[in-house]
């Protein structure tokens, strides 16, 4: 298992139903990693920057972020921008997972540095396929840990 059991999947989406469906379909392809769910961008950023009362990111642990765009308080685009401008956080793989399929927003996310862009298709077969493929990818991929040392070594 490339991702390793220590990989924590972060999912930021204000729709509980979507989160459930994503988790359910990932589990079906054997992704049983820890999930952390945030209902808005602010809570997610608090976690990443290790502040506030909620859970905090642990240095040295690998994470993957599934990010929705339309969220209250801080939206997905803003979160992505913040992450990709942060020298440490920019190594965090971000997969956009959103209902928005407007070409402009897709292009913007790629420009800001998302790793991938998945549309939550209304067609459920498509949706399931996409999540399955994501699961298969997660099983083989190696996720970087967010540590200053690693960052330096990676940059070299």
């Amino acid at each position: 298992m490339g991702a390793g059991v220590d990989l924590t999947i972060l999912i930021a989406d204000d729709d509980e139903g979507h989160v459930y469906l994503v988790r359910r379909n990932l589990e079906r392809v054997g992704i049983t990693n820890d999930f952390l769910h945030f209902t808005n961008g602010e809570a997610l950023l608090d976690f990443l920057y290790m502040r506030g009362d909620g859970p905090h990111r642990e240095a040295g642990r690998p994470y993957l972020l599934l990010l929705d765009i339309r969220m209250p308080r801080v939206d997905g685009i803003e979160v992505l921008r913040t992450i990709k401008q942060d020298p440490t956080l920019k190594l965090l793989p971000v997969i956009m997972l959103t209902t928005t399929d407007s070409p402009g927003e897709i292009a913007l996310c790629h420009e800001l540095g998302c790793s991938s862009y998945l549309t939550k298709s209304v067609n459920y077969e498509e949706f399931v396929d996409k999540i399955h493929n994501l699961g298969l990818f997660l099983r083989i991929a190696h996720m970087p840990t967010l540590q200053e040392d690693d960052l330096r070594s990676l940059e070299v």
Partner: peptide, 10 residues
Amino acid sequence: RSPLVNIIGF
């Protein structure tokens, strides 16, 4: 669209 995803999915 968001609720629609849920309706169909669930």
